[in-house]
Each structure stands twice: as structure tokens, then as C-alpha cells.
Amino acid sequence: MATNKNQHFVPRCYLKPFTLDGENKVINLFNIDRERHIHFAPVKHQCSRDYFYGDNPQLESAIQFVERSYASTIKELLVDGKKLNAKHKTILRRFWLLQHLRTEAACKRAAEMNNEMGSTFRAEIKDFKISIKDAVEMAMMTYADSMDIVDDLKVCLFKNKTRTPFVTSDDPAVLSNKWHLSDKRANFMSFGMHSAGALLFLPLSPKVLCLCYDGDVYSIGHTNGWVPVKNERDIKHFNQLQLANCMANIYYQDKDHSSSINKLYEETFHIRPERRHRFNYAVFDYEENGYERYRVVEKEELQENDNALFHYESIHPEPTNWPQHIKVRRNGAVYTNDTRVGYIRYEKIKERTSGGFRRERPGV
């Protein structure tokens, strides 16, 4: 049996720098559903559920190990002038991945995807329907099996030099992709953590934000891993990703910033995706020269015995503009073999059974 009944899917060690005076007791939040601020909310009740990870003590222990490593790393990095070293980078990448996979929002999306797939193909509900707890267990298995998937990404820390703080949320580990969302070659393709141009955002405190990025696609000027941010517009664009990605709550340290949170909400609400995934369907149309051709259809057009293809596509948040520090390399590199694999990073080619990959320049 797990030792803790109240289990946090966003841990208190992560939220601590955003709490009042960093004391890890109370925090200010803005609830999007009710469009209401709640000041001095107890941290122990935030982002938690009874036995969210089930009652497996080994799983709970493994998660706590990652959290302890993260907590000690943050304690070092929030000291001004601390150089970002290889150990820090590994811990930050691994914590981002764990946090990205395990939130209630992420697990709810996984359960909805699985259940909709079962209903689409008229499978026995018992064969497909999963609960959020099932999705949590699947997420933890994914983490254990592929925790090195983001290890090839570079890491930098943005130091906030403005009066506007970084905010965080109940789903703070954001995956996005500036290059993929703006380059017409990637139109009609989805992207993931293996993709060329991946960007992994995680606020660490009101003054520090971590970014893991594809160094073959982006150029970010830094000193010892640190990037100063002096323009409040850039802070706004970082914060937009939190509001666009969160499930329900935005967290911030100082209640005096409530009005700036209201303004952020007014300027950002329209970029929040109505749904976080999309299903695409295609049915067999005809065969020509040994190739099968499929026709895209709506779900309602699928028939009982159709030879059909099913494609799941994640919908990711995109700010109204990107922070000016994230620049695309004109002579960088993305890799594709013209299949649905899309554009991936060089380190991910060897993991693919398909070949024929070629290099293209992201800035062309």
C-alpha cells in the first residue's frame, strides 16, 4: 500500500517557488472555468487526488526519487549566477518528461483518446475503455521505457529581469514547436517529443524558466546556460503557453499581480484549443499500380466493414508571438523520409525501422 493517500500530480516541491514568500504553504491562483482569483489557497490541496498513482509503493518511491533530485537541483539553480551543468540539464529534462506525462489533464486526454478509438471501431467497451488511473499507469510505463527520449535536447534557463513574473499551472510542462507550426512543409503533420524543432517549456519560479530545445533547429544566445529577458512582451508570450495549456488553474506568487493575470487571460483565452486532440479517418478508395488509395471521410461516414485508416493528432498550444530569443537556424537540420513519421531529429533516425531519411534546412 502506498504510504501517502493524497498524491500530487504537480508536486509541492515544484510549486514551492511560486508560493507566498516561497514557504510552500499558500499560493494564489486564477481559475479559468470560473474566471475567478482565489488568494492564499493551501498548497496541499492543489493538483492532488487520493491515490492518483494507485497504491503501488514502488511506483510512489520512484516518483519521489525524481522529485527529490529536482528539488535539490532547483535549490542550486535559483542561486544567482549558478552555472548550468550537465547533471542539472539531465535532471531538468527528465523531470519535464515525467511532469508532462503524469498530470491529470494529460492522463484525461489519454483516456479520452483511447475510449473514442474504441467507440469509433465499435469494439467491445471492455477491450478499450480505460480510466484515468489506468492512463496514469500507462504514462508511468511510458516514462520508464523512454525517459531518454529528450536527452538529445539542449537546455537553457531564462532569467526574468522584468516586473512581470513567470506564472505556472496545473499542467506546466508544455510541448510546442515554433518551426513545425510555422513551416509549410510540416502542414498536415503532427509533432511530438521526437520531432525536429521540439520546444519543452517549464517555469521554475517567478524569475526563472527552463527551455529544452532542438539545437539543430534553434539558436539561443546564452552565458553559462542563462538567458536574460528584459522585455515584458517576451514574458507575456512565455506565460501564454501556460494559460493555453493548463487544465483549469494558473498559479502565481503575489496577489498584487491579479490584474496582470486578468489581462493575460483576456489576450490569451482565444488561443486555448477547444480540444487537445483530433481524429482523422480514411477509407479504402481504389488500388492503382500496386498502391492502395484512401479517401478522407468524417467519422459518421464509416461503415461496419470498411477497410479504414485511423490517425490521432495532438493539438498543441501556440502563443500569439514567440519570445524573440528563440531563433530558427537557417543552416540547421531537420530530417524526413516523406512518410507520416514527419520531420524528426538526427538522434531519432536510428530508432526508426524505416530508412531513406534526408537532411533539409529548417530556415529555407
Rank of each mutant, 00 (worst) to 15 (best):
S72V: 14
T73Q: 04
T73G: 05
E76G: 00
V79M: 03
V79Q: 11
D80H: 01
K82S: 15
K82Y: 14
K83P: 11
K83W: 09
N85M: 06
A86D: 13
A86Y: 06
K89Y: 04
K89G: 14
T90P: 00
T90E: 14
I91E: 07
L92D: 13
R93F: 02
F95L: 05
L97P: 08
L98E: 03
Q99W: 02
L101G: 10
E104V: 13
A106I: 14
C107A: 04
R109K: 11
A110Q: 13
E112M: 02
M113F: 02
N114I: 12
N115R: 07
N115D: 13
N115A: 07
M117H: 12
M117G: 03
S119R: 11
T120E: 09
T120N: 06
F121H: 12
R122L: 08
A123P: 00
A123H: 04
A123E: 08
D127V: 04
D127H: 02
F128G: 08
F128M: 01
K129S: 10
I130F: 07
I130Y: 04
I130W: 01
I132Y: 05
K133H: 12
A135M: 10
A135D: 11
A135E: 04
V136D: 11
V136Y: 06
M138L: 11
M138E: 13
M140T: 15
T142K: 02
Y143I: 14
Y143A: 03
S146D: 11
M147F: 05
D148E: 14
V150C: 06
D152M: 08
D152L: 01
D152H: 01
K154I: 04
K154G: 02
C156T: 15
F158N: 08
K161C: 01
T162G: 03
T162Q: 10
T162F: 01
T164D: 08
P165A: 11
P165H: 07
V167I: 10
S169T: 13
D170P: 01
D170S: 00
D170R: 00
D171I: 05
A173H: 02
V174T: 13
L175E: 00
S176H: 09
S176F: 10
S176C: 12
S176K: 00
N177L: 07
N177M: 03
N177A: 09
K178S: 10
W179P: 00
L181K: 09
D183W: 08
D183T: 14
N187Q: 10
N187L: 12
F188C: 05
G192V: 09
G192E: 13
G192Q: 05
M193N: 05
M193D: 05
M193Y: 07
H194F: 09
S195N: 08
A196C: 04
G197R: 04
L199Y: 07
F201L: 12
L202V: 08
P203N: 15
S205V: 15
P206H: 06
K207T: 15
V208M: 03
L209T: 15
L209N: 11
